[in-house]
Each structure stands twice: as C-alpha cells, then as structure tokens.
Nucleic acid binder design. Sequence first.
DNA 1: TGCAAAGTTGCAGTGACTGCAAAACTCTCC
DNA 2: GGAGAGTTTTGCAGTCACTGCAACTTTGCA
Lengths: 209, 209
Amino acid sequence: MNQSGESLRDRKKRRTRAALERATVRLAAERGYDHVTVEEIAAEADVSVRTFFNYFASKDEALIGADPEAGPRMAGRITSAADGVSPFEAYRQSVLAEITDELNNARDLWLLRKEVLMQRPDLLVRAFANSAESEQLLAAAVGARAGLPESHLYPRLVVAAGSAAFRCAVTRWALDDNVALGDLVGEALDLFGTGLVHVPPHHHEGGTS
Amino acid sequence: MNQSGESLRDRKKRRTRAALERATVRLAAERGYDHVTVEEIAAEADVSVRTFFNYFASKDEALIGADPEAGPRMAGRITSAADGVSPFEAYRQSVLAEITDELNNARDLWLLRKEVLMQRPDLLVRAFANSAESEQLLAAAVGARAGLPESHLYPRLVVAAGSAAFRCAVTRWALDDNVALGDLVGEALDLFGTGLVHVPPHHHEGGTS
DNA sequence: TGCAAAGTTGCAGTGACTGCAAAACTCTCC
DNA sequence: GGAGAGTTTTGCAGTCACTGCAACTTTGCA
C-alpha cells in the first residue's frame, strides 16, 4: 500500500462505484427509470453487468447510491454528542449533518434524482427497505442515549421518524424549487419533535401573511 | 345481479383473492418467503400464474394483502369525524379502527405473517411502497381537516407517521408475545402525537412499577 | 337461448438477479 | 523484476418475477 492510506485498489473501487451510481441516475433521469436496463448502466460505466451487482444489490440501490458508511457515521455522531443533548436532538443533528454533507458533495446528482423521484415516488420508499441494519445501528445509539432497553418502541420510532421526514421532505422538495432540502428535513423533524397534535400555522406564499 | 348487492362474480373474485393471499402467507411462513415461487402459490390457490398477477401487482403485495379499499375507507372516516376532533386525532382513530377490524377478521393470517416478517423485516417496508395513492388520499383528508394547502409538509408527515408507527409496532410485536398489536400502534402514535423530544418512561417487565 | 362484458389462461418475451469458475489484476515480499 | 497470495472482474448458464397479447371460458342480463 502507499502512505496515503488508500491503495490503488481502493481508489479504483471508489471510482467504479461512483461511476455506476452516476450512470444509473443520469440515464434514469434522461429516459425514465424503467426504460433503462442494468446492461446499459454497466456499459455506460464501462464494466460488466456482473460487476454492477458486485457493487449494488439491486438497481434501486444504485439509484439512491446508499452509502454503506452512512449508518455507522451517523451512529457515531449520536453516541459522541455532548452530554446534555437529548436523544432526539442528537439524532436530529446527526441527520441534518449527513444531509448537508451529502448535498455539498453531490448536489448535481440529487438534482437528477429529483427528476426521477418526481415520476416514481415509490422508489424512495423502496430505497429504505435495504437499510435495516443501518436503522438497527441508529436505534441502538438512540436507545443508549435515552437509557431505554433494546426492545423499546421509542428508539425505533425516532429513527423511523427520520426516514419519514426525509421521505416527505424530498417529495415536497420535488414539487417546486425555492426550498432547500435541508431546511425541509429540519422542519419535518421539528414537527415530529414537538408533536403532531400541534397543527403548524399556514404561511402564505407572499411571505407577510 | 341478485338482490344482495354482491353478484356471483364478485363473490368469486373475493374468494380467489383471499385464497391467493392465504396461500402466499401460508407457504411463505412454512418454508421461507423466497423459497416459494409464484407458480407454487398459484397452484395452491388453484389458479394460473397469470391470474395471480391479475390480482396482485407483485409477490410482495400478496404477502401483505394490501386491501385496495382500505385507503378510501380510512379517508372517509377522517373526513366524517366529528367537528371538534383534531386532524391528528381523527387520523389516529382511523388507523386504530382499521387495525382492529383487520385483526378481528384475519388474526390467524397476521400470526403467520409475523413469522415471515421476523425473518425478513424489509418486506414490511417494501409493502408500503405500493401505497402511494392511498397515502395521497389520506394526506388530502388530513390536510382538509387541518386547513392546510395540498403542498404543506404536515399532512404528508402525519400519514407517514402512521406508516412508521405501524411498521415499528409490527417489528416490536414480532419480538415477543404478550403485547397486542393494536396497543403498540396506539402507543407509537401517541409518542408521535405528543412529540419525540419527550423520552417516555421505562416500564419494567414486572408491570406494577 | 344468445349476446356482451368480465374474468381466466397460455404463451412468448424481457430483464433483474445469483452461483460458479476462470481470467485479470493488485499487493507484498524477496 | 518476478513469484505467489489475495482480490476483483468477467462470462455463462440458469431461475424467477412480471408483462402484453390474443384466445377461451364464465357470468350477467334480456
């Protein structure tokens, strides 16, 4: 290996993964998700179909580009939050940090994904199906901070609320521009935080109401 | 047609649908979801494979047995709730009523589904992917009651919270017995209602505490 | 009974996904 | 620079979910 900690092998893998993700999103945005075959995606990324499936378990997964390190990373942030921070707040900040990073690193990809998800909102739901272990990890971190046993509903609900918030925010975001995705997720999480029994006030578009 | 309002055709369709749903759940519980082919399910229900796909869009859908009338039914309950009832409360009652009914009508099926979902929790997530129009319907009903525009996050979030509550409750329910699914869903919805910033107290198993 | 509408079926085809074993590549150590 | 171990890529053959279409059967109604 070389001194930078990342070998040629690792670099190539990252590049291939990124190429496949980009190819999937680009082609799906261009001509519709199910008018694109894995064969075409693989060709676009210059690898074999079999290699596509070495990187992603499904076409769905490649479209969202689920980062396998995101779960551990977020769990780490929750666990290492300052002492006074509540479990929900720690989770909230972890989610928002992740999204901000993601958008800074790949805003262009998300703009293309938006096109696809506008046509096929169900893909976003399906994308969360494969993240069971990540959810497990996050729930454990939240549970630890809350002092609740593994089996309790609460940690799971907090994590599920995060998925739901993200999902709804993206759906809303896809409707029109002029709203930052990060803000929408934050808003959604706040509603979950303060409780859904409180109906939020309605802001008119003009602004001053 | 006959005077009872349900023709022979309708009765047959209901029976076929139920048979397919039962066959799917039974076989999946018996030998594992993906060791069962649609061909075997169809054979068990005494219809052709093609007919299976006339009733269900996918194997997943047949496992959960998503009732296409559930969405409209729930939306109707929300809309026709008494005047003073808050949007969230109306939604909560609608969900709980639906679940109670479902469990009363098909408790045995749910016990089998539980076996399957213990092995493959992701199937529950995927099951919600196909219910986009139902969610749309429910969100509209909640939005109307809340006096919020179609585009607002809130109605969508309430509905998504319902899915999340159901999902988490089932997951928790599959862990051990001694808890009623309906109670768990109710508990989950209450947590969403009052806000996740409040960490619930921890009840010990002994019970009295 | 006889016709129209609805439901069922077989068939042929597409495409996602998997296991396997061979080939190509990268790393390390000498 | 080259041998050998470990990793990644690839082709191939196979399975199975799912779809459109066009015949065939059943049901509803006059």
